[in-house]
Design a protein around this nucleic acid. Structure first.
Lengths: 138, 138
DNA sequence: GGAGATAGTTGTAGTGCTATAACTGTTATA
DNA sequence: TATAACAGTTATAGCACTACAACTATCTCC
């Protein structure tokens, strides 16, 4: 029984558990009534206010499209743009209370562990937690 | 230390390991020189020949778009359409040897466990294999 | 001070995919 | 037999997002 085989099986289970998350994406889209990248923008901004260029980087998209996304979120009252006092070229995008609420909803949907995982016995969960906790953070 | 917390942490690690798979999608797209759904179609057909309608169902897309995808794959010599002998309305789509090769490439890319997982000690891998093997297949 | 780089906006074009309609040929069922 | 349903194709429109160009205002650095 090779470790490569075991790792392959382990990874297959993980992929199943997470990729059923595809309908979590759709769930987020439905719950928030916006495209998924907009929810990702909200979640990024819920962490801290950032510049437009930094937001584009975090969303792995380009500046013009980021402008479009933020325009829409601002129109929905979920974010505000403010002038950066340190550099007059720059805008800081901040999340509003309503935006934070939406971001929290999205986060809850995305991060909820599958019921079959939660249903594992405590000693199994403890072992998984311990082992997976060893993995490197890249 | 609640089980819900442990499950949340466990799931977060899984999500990280799998969602870095987003660049696996891109890797597949680059390696095969086609859109991702085309690679998914090839992988479905590599299992067994199926009807167009069944293929659309498996791809979770609609019949007109499935026609477009299969048209392209057929033009590339990766699949062939044949008349279903049991029902003259139906076509069976079969993969060609070249298509099978492309599907195998995609599968290899997608299913390869992350190196940090493979690098875990054997007893940890065995434990993960055993525990995750208990999860229900939905 | 001036040249070059950067921030964010405005604009255009294209791709992948969803959604829908309509059609011809075929099958199933009342 | 007639009607309804189904298979697959052709066609159209729209959305989300990528990619790129160009612009004005501002900043950095030689």
């Amino acid at each position: 029984m090779s470790e490569q085989d075991a790792a392959g099986r382990i990874y297959a289970v993980m992929r199943r558990l997470v990729l059923e998350a595809d309908d979590r994406k759709q769930h987020v889209v439905d719950a928030l009534g916006m495209s998924y990248i907009r929810s990702r923008a909200l979640r990024a901004l819920a962490v801290e206010p950032i510049r437009m260029t930094e937001l584009a980087t975090r969303l792995v998209t380009d500046k013009p499209y980021t402008t479009l996304v933020v325009d829409d979120l601002e129109a929905r009252g979920l974010v505000v743009r403010e002038q950066d006092p340190d550099d007059r070229r720059c805008k800081i995008v901040k999340i509003t209370p309503a935006g934070r609420e939406a971001a929290d909803t999205a986060t809850r949907i995305i991060t909820a562990p599958p019921t079959e995982l939660v249903a594992l016995p405590p000693e199994d969960l403890e072992a998984l937690d311990r082992i997976l906790g060893k993995l490197q953070h890249p």
